[in-house]
Simulated assay, not measured.
Amino acid sequence: MIRSLLYVPGNTPRFLEKAASRGADAIIIDLEDAVPEALKSSARDALAQSVPMVGRGGAEVFVRVNMTDRLLDDAEAACRAGAAGLYLPKVNSVTVLDRLVAHLAPIEAETKRNPLRFVPLIEDAEGLFEARAIARGPRVLGISSGGEDLATSMGAKPLPEVLRLPKQMIHYAAKAAGVLSFGLFRSTVDFADTEAIREAAEEARSYGFDGASCIHPSVVPVLNAAFAPSEAEIVWARKVVAAARTEEQAGRGAFMLDGQFLDAPIVTRAERLLARLHPKT
């Protein structure tokens, strides 16, 4: 499970040093918006040290690159540093994914490492209508949206009611492609209202989102709790799966359990919940 993804500025050693202890399932070292232009090159050069440092606690490590003429150099540095994947801002076409694969493949062969995975961020209206193609692109692990940029591109405010429909469209594109979907129906910028974030995370999970990113470590435990199955849900799922096996042996595809009618979609939901606890590798 990737329930929580914590952004950390790539040019701030004190944040990078503490990132591994924050409890996030993934750390995103940011070379883009969080880093001033004058410091972007030095932040990239530091990836050789910062990637293993933030990942020493077991978190997956992603690097958010710059979608500018720095793109390929950022991607190569992340690859050589051992990052698991790239967070790709402002993606509005699958073409950039193909370009990255062509650039990275020989480097990965040279260094004998696994291929980098991609998490494209949809951040404008053009990308929104290309979300299905992007989600099905090469090496895509999951997709998400950049709420602030998306609203700005439309001349709108990043209010939950403004972001809801485009974020749903991006989410459905992810699910149709069978990749992960990250996000909440709100901006990540307002991190102080913990209760509102908890409610938003629980709502997002009810829609089938897999996790969400945050910019402050105080939000990490909120996301971890909201996107993880509860103990009661796990007990229910195990009970359903066990009963389904018994009923199948008796030749029944639909059955009653504790007064509830169960059939194939409900059993599948229970199986998928348990699969999140023990994913195949």
Rank of each mutant, 00 (worst) to 15 (best):
V235A: 09
Y87A: 13
G259R: 06
E60I: 14
D263R: 11
F191P: 06
V63Y: 12
A38N: 15
A59G: 12
R269N: 11
A26D: 05
V140M: 06
F129S: 14
V119L: 07
P115G: 00
R70A: 11
R136C: 12
F227P: 00
V8C: 11
M1N: 07
A135T: 09
I215F: 08
D25F: 09
A254W: 05
F191D: 12
E108V: 03
E126V: 15
T68V: 01
A232T: 00
N114K: 14
V189H: 14
S213Q: 09
V189A: 14
N114E: 12
S206A: 11
P13K: 13
P138L: 09
S213H: 08
E148I: 11
Y207P: 00
F227L: 04
P221R: 06
I170A: 01
L141H: 12
S153C: 09
I122H: 07
F227N: 01
L141Q: 10
L88E: 01
L39Q: 14
A84P: 08
Q168F: 13
R56K: 15
R272A: 07
I29M: 04
R205M: 02
L163N: 07
V8L: 08
A19G: 10
G23A: 13
S4W: 09
G85N: 03
R276L: 10
N11W: 13
I170Q: 04
V96G: 08
P160V: 09
S206D: 02
A196R: 08
F255I: 03
R164P: 07
V54C: 03
K90Y: 12
V140T: 05
P115S: 04
L47G: 11
P158Q: 06
T246D: 09
K175V: 10
G55D: 04
R117I: 10
R44Y: 04
A20C: 14
L257Q: 08
G10R: 04
L277M: 07
G253H: 06
V91L: 06
R164G: 08
D98M: 04
S230K: 02
A270C: 03
P9H: 05
P160G: 10
E126T: 15
D258C: 00
A242M: 08
G147W: 01
V35K: 00
P138C: 13
I28H: 10
M169E: 05
L5S: 11
L262G: 00
A78H: 10
T12P: 12
V162N: 15
I29P: 01
L165V: 15
M154Q: 13
E202F: 06
K18V: 12
D69L: 10
D25C: 09
G137W: 06
V96N: 01
A228R: 05
D25L: 11
E199W: 10
D124G: 12
L274V: 03
A176I: 09
A102T: 13
V119C: 04
S21A: 15
E110I: 06
A135V: 09
K18P: 12
P106Q: 10
V240N: 00
M169G: 00
F62K: 07
P229H: 00
D33S: 04
T188V: 13
F185S: 01
N92F: 14
G127V: 03
S145P: 00
V91C: 02
S206C: 02
L257V: 11
